[in-house]
Design a protein around this nucleic acid. Sequence first.
DNA 1: CTTGGGTTAGAAAGCGTTTTCTCACTCTAT
DNA 2: ATAGAGTGAGAAAACGCTTTCTAACCCAAG
Lengths: 349, 349
Amino acid sequence: MTGSTDGGAAPAVRSPRGERRGGILEVARLAGVSASTVSRVVNGRTGVDPVLAERVRDAAAELGYRASPLARSLVLGRTQTVAVVVPDLANPSFQGMLHGITRAAAHDGYRVLVADSAEDVDDEASIARETRMRCDAVILCAPRTPTETLAELTPTLEPVVLVNRTLPGSGVPSVAIDYADGIERLAAHLAGLGHRRIAYLAGTRASASDAVRRDGLARFALAHPEISLVTIEAGVGLADGEQAADEVLAADVSAVLAFNDLVAVGLLRALTERGVDVPRDISITGFDDIPFAAYTTPALTTAEVPVEALGALAWQRMAAVLGGTPPGVDEVLVPELRLRGSTGPAPAE
Amino acid sequence: MTGSTDGGAAPAVRSPRGERRGGILEVARLAGVSASTVSRVVNGRTGVDPVLAERVRDAAAELGYRASPLARSLVLGRTQTVAVVVPDLANPSFQGMLHGITRAAAHDGYRVLVADSAEDVDDEASIARETRMRCDAVILCAPRTPTETLAELTPTLEPVVLVNRTLPGSGVPSVAIDYADGIERLAAHLAGLGHRRIAYLAGTRASASDAVRRDGLARFALAHPEISLVTIEAGVGLADGEQAADEVLAADVSAVLAFNDLVAVGLLRALTERGVDVPRDISITGFDDIPFAAYTTPALTTAEVPVEALGALAWQRMAAVLGGTPPGVDEVLVPELRLRGSTGPAPAE
DNA sequence: CTTGGGTTAGAAAGCGTTTTCTCACTCTAT
DNA sequence: ATAGAGTGAGAAAACGCTTTCTAACCCAAG
């Protein structure tokens, strides 16, 4: 067959220290059996003479043999790896999600390959496809991608689970946070405190999660015609909230719903600096309940978005799909309100 | 050779939508050439008749052909993937690093496989080894792993780059933040403000990054015998800082060096709540310069740890090793001090 | 007109596994 | 004693690609 004792220099995925040269054949030779038998023993297949099995195990141990995942993947047709595609790994939400997914997947023996599309919607599709080829599935976070593009993309990625995006009627499973519900309830909380003029500090215009918040607010506005709601374009980061301060003051509102906690904290800081008392003069709410939210002064009223749980849930759904279970309906996580010191009664006129 | 028109049902790493069945042979058949030629064209090898090359490209495009990374990896002996092993993906520092690595690696055509060892030092070695087999290299963050274990592990992982750990004399390249220098300079800053009794809010005892901070402080203490330095065991999170407040007050110090920004913010909040004025009564410094540090009230004096740059640097070193360049000396990033409102002159006795 | 060098394309040998297929052997029942 | 079933192990094909090796071909030079 192949070279009998040697084999020549070969590519080197293998260990660099000189140990573990030939792979399964080395073990087979040492144990005096065929590669087939080694494979059977290593994979726990039954029907191998206990004596041989023992010899194989000894040989494998002595050589420190571990089957090449690459070769296994090629023949088995699965990699035990799932791709996670996010638009921006700098974003704490995606980081948290990634964490949730990684832990949950590891629990089921799967690894995670991360791909950061760097907010580039155009590249996203090709990045996702490329990544998919190395994996068994992809978990896709694509808040900015147009629905149409997404509908074209997902079939080529299957199995796929969408995060914070739905594709109704497509059968693509998804998990999402109900931002609309969360912000609607935050608004209701403010209304209950007597606020009548409220500002919404909007996120990025193109993002799906901003759109869904606006939906929630629209619903709220419909149910509360007595309340006037103004929208101020801000952004998604600390600096954006800070810069929006003057516009907020000019808007003459008694409460503001910030796009997220970062924006809220930025605003809180800017207002505090200007001598505005929160919540006496103006109430502020955030969104996400990042760990810091409870540690600002005053502590931030917000809606808890369990990103890690969302990640874990995404994996759970993926595991189900991978296991052959029909996808079922979309999962929606409802945020819990965390009422803290940054909101209070509306100031008397 | 192989089945002439069919080939039977095969494993299914491939696309699920029915397109792209046979791989390279399909393309070869459609273009009327051999697989070799297709491979050559696809990989841009020269010496192919332009007419054939064109036919191949057309065929590939028509079939939407993309070479299987798995098969390529197997034959080429490289996966274009690097493993990043971190002890806890929930930690913002590791998240930032991961981001830096991912971006930098993507720039060089490499993907990142994440592995979270979940703080389990025992499993770490096997996790690292397992992950390594699917990748070309590993970037290892192992702050808690005993040096001895690390020295045993790294040779089996090569090529490897260590983060915030060095293995002197081993030739293992590493990148690190000079925490010792950073905290020493923070201490000097406080000394310059007239503080004579300073507390260090320590992190986790076993962690290398806490040990290195203590080294820096020891150096500082040696150079400044007039200053009394007390150590208070705290931890690494927001809650840890908060809980240390009473002990800090009892210690009768005028300034506190917190292990990191999280601890500092926790402490800041707790002190503010108790009516202590920062920095008039007590000065506080953090470490890391997380985005929030500039947004607390007062803003936090801290040392900037450029985690993303560290990640990028780690990749850069890895790229060098992968490219055959000798590792060279260890890289050390010196943190920049960010002097803000949380530190001020020591109160007059 | 033949020989030799330079191209270009295909055949085939891997890369390291798993798994089917085949065969040899052992044991039981006739 | 012998056929038939049952067990266990090895040979070989397959996974999808890259690359060496070989052969065919064309053209220029002797």
